[in-house]
Amino acid sequence: MDRILAILQEIELPFAYDHFAEGESPEPPFICYLIPGSDNFAADGKVYVRINEFHIELYTDCKNPALENSVEAVLDNHSIFYNKSEVWIESEKLYEVLYTFEMEV
Rank of each mutant, 00 (worst) to 15 (best):
C32K: 04
Q9K: 11
T60N: 08
N40R: 09
P65N: 15
E22A: 11
E68S: 09
K63Q: 04
V49W: 02
L13R: 03
K63P: 00
A66D: 15
Y48C: 00
H55L: 07
V47M: 06
A43M: 09
E27D: 10
Y33Q: 10
S25L: 01
F41R: 13
A6P: 05
E27F: 00
E27H: 07
Y48N: 12
A6H: 12
E53L: 04
N52D: 15
F41D: 13
V47L: 03
L67T: 13
A43F: 07
D44A: 14
P65V: 10
T60Y: 09
T60I: 04
P26E: 11
S70N: 10
I11W: 10
E68M: 13
K46A: 13
F41N: 05
S38C: 03
E57M: 07
C32W: 07
L34H: 13
L8H: 08
N40I: 06
I7T: 07
G23Q: 14
N64T: 11
S25H: 00
L58Q: 03
E53Q: 15
V49H: 13
E22K: 13
F20D: 12
A73T: 14
F41Y: 07
T60S: 14
P14W: 05
G37M: 01
E57K: 03
Y33L: 03
P28A: 08
F15M: 07
F20C: 08
I35P: 00
F30N: 06
P65W: 14
T60F: 03
D39E: 15
A66Q: 12
Y48M: 09
